[in-house]
Design a protein around this nucleic acid. Structure first.
Lengths: 201, 201, 201, 201
DNA sequence: GATGAATGAGCGTTCATTCAT
DNA sequence: CATGAATGAACGCTCATTCAT
């Protein structure tokens, strides 16, 4: 096995990212990835068993990158709402700053690979470092967040974010910093338990 | 005669829907669609100019079906919130009842075709029967809904819905009738203008 | 068997001629011929066993038409040269007046069918009404025409004519009546026995 | 490296030539060319962008080969008639010696590609190394050749040659060396200005 | 007789993967 | 280690021919 950090390996992943983000999975033939990476087509198979593995690895890298980004400035001891706003804002900012990463992740989740990952995250028992999951579970336990299944809370917390990120990248809206903040705040409004009416939810 | 409602035409559309919903656009080769529809491969081209047209037509049919479904019981004169809840609930129920339709539409919107459609819907000026759009614009005008760009309101209104529908279909959550209602209510909570705090929004 | 003169049959042959002359053998699918002829595709098979037979029959018709045209005003008792000039001029005029016929015949001769026909004409023993052949054989016997194999004389008599007809139809030259006469005269100059030098040829 | 002279490339061109010469453009599917060349079907596309390019390249090669052959022993300073006889004789010999080349060129000129080439050659103003054209124009200028349009002279010079070459290849005549000479001489007789009779031509 | 919907073999072309160098 | 030429299965699509009506 070749070292994780091989320069060639990174070039290949970068080329794949650019092509897939730019034109979709199916306009990213191996030969083109190789050309853009400046390596031979066969070389790719020295670093990745097949195309599926290459894509899975690309996803893993981006996932790690996003996680690291989210952790940056994350205060685990801050109030729940603040933590929620931090995560959402950071995530949206990340997508605005890294549109290719978003486009790739979108494609990935919209494919059979994505389903498997999602299953692990939502149903898995292992604590796999999912910040959102812990946050939401804590919120429910503390009765700050509506008492809904985790899956639904997830959807409320991230669904609007994904749609708005896509529309920004497609040029349908310009996500300014205040707009980002307002969007995430609205997500929180959807998730948080109503305060005036105890029966609310 | 090749009528709109030709039985073979419908079989072909059905087969395409099943395959695309089940495994994505690219695991639905014409030969397989034909086999599943019980017709020869060449026959498909008597009903559809090419594969793109077949897919576009499938989308059009489903879009019409959804629209009709949403209009069923929709009271244009009812209060805004009620109308919002009606639309969301109906849509989510539809997806729960017609998982293949949902899966297809998801694939479609995640393709170049979908982008074009979205552009028309979000940026177009023509009143093209978009219920959500009119509802949201009215809500903003009446100061019942937060004063955010249409695109963002769209995301808040439909984003969670799409994610939760997918997760239901994938078996990650069981969307009971009450859960559907709670989910849509939460979307409304995200969209509606805060009442107690004037600075809110 | 359907009557030779069936109106539908003629319409089919006409449609085939127009399409083949216009765009070549392979841009003349049966369905298009049927459409242009105003009949059903299946109907064509009531009149012609298959596409090959249709084409062969079209050739036969045109061949007859040309023969009739050449005989028009042909004086079997006129001097050889005069007869030669008559045939060549008539043929060239015919092609100028009926470019589609020429285009079709060109295609036909340039296909496997054409070879069989040519073989019969050049090697066959049956006197099949070939005016040129009799003329040339007579010319050789009378020592007015060079003593060359029939095939070669044929080539000298008709080769330039075919090339010039094609170039006229393609618009590379405008074949006026005097130019036609000059061209055929030049063909005769190539075929006729030299007069001043007995050893000539 | 895909050199001009790659062995596989030549094998593919050779296979295409054999098939097209033998049975025409449309009985030479890529799969058959590949099989005869002893390569995979996909391999052809490494050397040629598509089938059209393969055919165009085949034409270019043969055209060059013919040109080189014609130039062999051509004396630009020899008398016009001698040059004419040299060209015709050489061309006919070439076709007799390379029947497949002839058959291919025949097919090519009888296709849309061929028409474009012909147009350039006949109507183009650039001196594109066309030996025949320069010869004929010179002949007209010197009043050695009949004062006819270039296109017609072309037809008289090459028409018989093409017909006779085809008939030789089809076995309708045996083109011996003397017969070749006589044929070309006859072409010259058709083209040259009559000397005894001033009104001639 | 006449139809045209249905067929499926066959086409040109792409691309993930292999392997000799 | 790295390469890129070679592969062939699979794709979307065409069209001569058949046959139920």
């Amino acid at each position: 096995m070749v070292a994780e950090s091989s320069e060639k390996r990174q070039k290949i992943l970068r080329a794949a990212l650019e092509l897939i983000a730019g034109h979709g999975f199916h306009d990213a033939p191996i030969a083109l990835i190789a050309e853009r990476a400046g390596v031979g087509a066969g070389t790719i198979y020295r670093y990745f068993e097949d195309k599926d593995v290459l894509i899975a690895e690309l996803f893993r890298q981006l996932h790690d990158k996003v996680y690291t980004w989210l952790m940056n400035g994350y205060g685990p001891d801050r109030p729940l709402e603040e933590r929620f706003l931090h995560l959402g804002t950071a995530l949206l900012r990340y997508f605005v700053a890294n549109p290719m990463d978003f486009r790739f992740l979108e494609q990935y989740f919209n494919s059979p690979y994505g389903v498997a990952f999602r299953r692990t995250k939502l149903l898995g028992t292992s604590d796999n470092g999912d910040l959102y999951r812990r946050l939401l579970e804590e919120g429910v336990a503390r009765k700050v967040v509506k008492d809904l299944p985790l899956v639904v809370l997830y959807a409320l917390a991230t669904g609007p974010l994904l749609v708005v990120a896509r529309d920004h990248i497609l040029g349908f809206v310009e996500l300014s910093e205040p707009l980002i903040a307002q969007t995430i705040q609205a997500c929180w409004d959807g998730i948080k338990r109503g305060v005036t009416n105890e029966n609310d939810q």
